[in-house]
Design a protein around this nucleic acid. Structure first.
Lengths: 221, 221
DNA sequence: GACATAATTAACCAGACCGAACAATGTGGC
DNA sequence: GCCACATTGTTCGGTCTGGTTAATTATGTC
């Protein structure tokens, strides 16, 4: 209505022109949302803030992700996917079991350090009692490469008689994860209480080595 | 207006009578708030919900705690205080260092298990980058009994030549905390991915023993 | 080049929520 | 009996916020 003839640049609705880029828009939203969710949590995040930091609009968020929770779910699933890929990349075949085990432990430690956002998302998800986790068949522990690697390493060590019996791959993974995770998740409160020394480069190197020591000494016969 | 003479029980303002109990009201609020903050986080918590679950009113919350953040701060400080008290109660004097160390580690593990709300508050506070922590002089690591106990134990073990050199009390505390904390903090996501076996009584007993093993084997010469 | 459909923009809404403002009144120490 | 403090109840404003409605433009296809 109106906007009949002549120039179309003055009053209303000249409406910008744009190029279509569904995948781009989608992943742009996902990436921004991930940062903000990791920073502020599910309830702490404002959809408007995500929107304003994307190169698209709020409406697009709802267009692609239905609602806030839907967006959060996809962010979480995406983060797990990427982390798993990083773990899959580790190559340990051929190494003697005690070397492989230490390497796996220290790799995990470093990998967690690099993945602050992921850790924060997991923290948040635990606050929510894991209600938004991806379908467990997608991320089941059985087909995790971390577990299968540990399985092989432990079996080898047992075969060589250098490891003690009675442990499981999941238990080992639990311990490695605990130490690597805590280092990131509790940095803020821990350094507030005990000082930041353990978190500078030297301190981290020490901790990383201890983590390797602990896991190794736990399994050695 | 109105309400002149006669009976004072029908329309408005007969106003209940009550006993004064500032401390009671205050701690009632604190306790309810703690549960809800632990459950839903800082931004997830509704002041109105806290109010409705107390035996007092929303007005009183503002009366005693100024605002939401003030309440949250006090809840957090209170939780730390209680946890520290529980740690202080542990008695280890006279035990040989390797026994004392294991006992301390396994005690911490159990103690964390019992303090789910506290752990959740710490998780939440880490999400907020420790912005609401009590003044560090109040909870400084130096005057923590956990640290001083570890100091003594480690010194004894060194003197007896059964511990290896190069470790510190804070590092040991870090490891013990990491393992004990993760067990509670990440239960939801971990059991979602790897199953809940490690979290039944038998699984927990195993883990607890492993935690003792790990710490002990880490320091043994 | 018309048409259906997907992608995108822009403006809007209704409810939730924090915190404040009133307005009284009871309680307990001195 | 006085006065500061504790307590209750209610109402309200204003803003924040998740989600919606409606109009508009791009694109692939026949």
């Amino acid at each position: 209505m109106a906007q009949t003839t002549d120039s179309d640049e003055d009053t209303d609705l000249p409406r910008r022109r744009w190029k279509q880029d569904p995948d781009g828009v989608r992943s742009n939203i996902l990436q921004v949302a991930r940062e903000i969710f990791a920073q502020k949590g599910l309830s702490g995040t404002r959809i408007d803030e995500i929107a304003s930091r994307t190169s698209t609009s709020k409406r697009m968020i709802y267009y692609y992700f239905v609602d806030k929770e839907g967006l959060y779910r996809e962010v979480l699933a995406d983060a797990y996917r990427q982390t798993r890929e990083a773990e899959d990349a580790l190559e340990l075949t051929g190494l003697p079991p005690e070397v492989a085990l230490r390497k796996l432990a220290e790799f995990t430690f470093e990998n967690h350090r690099r993945s602050q956002d992921f850790i924060r998302l997991v923290m948040i998800e635990n606050i929510h009692e894991a209600h938004h986790m991806p379908d467990s068949d997608k991320i089941s522990g059985e087909n995790s490469s971390a577990i299968s690697m540990l399985d092989v390493i432990y079996a080898n060590g047992m075969a060589q008689g250098i490891f003690r019996p009675g442990l499981t791959a999941v238990e080992l993974h639990w311990h490695i994860s605990a130490l690597s995770y805590f280092n990131v998740s509790n940095r803020a409160t821990f350094s507030h209480i005990f000082g930041a020394e353990l978190f500078d480069e030297a301190g981290q190197a020490t901790l990383r080595q201890h983590v390797g020591d602990m896991i190794l000494r736990l399994v050695l016969a």
